[in-house]
Amino acid sequence: MADTTTRAKVRWGLLDLAVVVFALTPVLWIMSLSFKTPATLTDGKFIPREWTLENYRTIFATDQFVRALVNSIGIALIATSIAVVLGAMAAYAISRLDFPGKRMLIGVSLLIAMFPQVSLVSPLFEIERQLGLFDTWPGLILPYITFALPLAIYTLSAFFKQIPWDLEKAAKMDGATQGQAFRRVIAPLAAPGLFTTAILVFIFCWNDFLFAISLTSTERSRTVPVALSFFTGASQFEDPTGAICAAAVVITVPIILFVLFFQRRIVSGLTSGAVKG
């Protein structure tokens, strides 16, 4: 018995390791590059022969990158909060109520999710220039919300559907108003769904390149993925690879923090025990 469990553990361990190595190799490679000096950059060694923090110093020395980082964080956070709040309300209505036009609402949001974004870029560019939104934060936040909402509505309505209706009825019988029932009973139970959705939407906004490059022109609202493509290194003649890698490592950090922060709240099986069967 003990023997088989040890063997099973070893087998699973090896399998897990293989998956992790496969997934992490590109990331680790970029990390390794970010610590190399320009001279050893192309030596093909995984462990840098000479360690340096020069690349990191370079990117933070330029205003260009720091500005972009601030833009990225601000835009992604604002778009995420708005999309999650709106999405939660829409998803709650969809999963709880039967209202006229419900099917159409679902259909249209599905349509938006499937619409190729690239075909919207030129019209959006024109519209935003006319409205004066071009190269501003709202100019990016608005399209992000549009494309994140269907995603948010889908994920969230799946979560809301899992929450037993009876809980809301019970809260009402216990003397809660509709608002109190939602805030004190439903929302805490939907929290894992809210956090999951927040992570997905945040990553979508954070990673976007297409809208960011088409709808911005200056540092005023340029986000990190775009700023990276304009990177030149410390001087014009220097190869920016090391700096780009350092920047790439830096921008994955907020994502990791964001996920770690919310992951602790995503306790699976939170609704278990509410109802029998």
Binding site: P164, D166, L167, K169, A170, A171, K172, M173, D174, G175, A176, T177, V185, P188, L189, L270, T271, S272, G273, A274, V275, K276, G277
Partner: peptide, 20 residues
């Protein structure tokens, strides 16, 4: 009247306990 203004309590078949 809304349920909260009727001052009656209900026990559900599913128990409907708040799991959190």
């Amino acid at each position: 009247k809304a349920p909260r203004d009727r001052d009656i309590a209900m026990v559900f078949q599913s128990y409907a306990l708040y799991p959190n």
